[in-house]
């Protein structure tokens, strides 16, 4: 495991831990998802650059487009939950509990 590999792995894991363990706002969860996507972009780009397989360097661009789609869907859901629940706190998403 090289330092570069370690860095993006650590970045992704940190984003995942942040998403999994403590979120008060839905927006924070979305930002954590964005952080995971950022580390994935860097991982794919660095894989392309280090292995000199330049044909693969479209992959980070495609990833960026898809993560933009995901982020915008998440923000639209933020608007929808703010409309129905009145707040973006994840504590208030408790209508479906057992």
């Amino acid at each position: 495991m090289t330092p570069v590999h370690f860095s993006f792995t650590a970045a992704f894991t940190l984003g995942l831990m942040g998403l999994a363990f403590h979120r008060t706002h839905l927006l924070s969860a979305l930002i954590c998802l964005e952080g995971m996507m950022l580390s994935l972009f860097i991982a794919l780009s660095l894989w392309t650059l280090q292995l000199e397989s330049t044909a693969f360097s479209t992959a980070p661009m495609l990833l960026l487009a898809f993560s933009a789609c995901e982020a915008s869907a998440g923000l639209a859901l933020l608007v929808a939950t703010a409309r129905t629940h009145g707040t973006d706190r994840l504590q208030n998403l408790n209508l479906l509990q057992c």
Partner: peptide, 8 residues
Amino acid sequence: PRAVEATT
């Protein structure tokens, strides 16, 4: 509201 919450 329940549907939106489930979707989120």
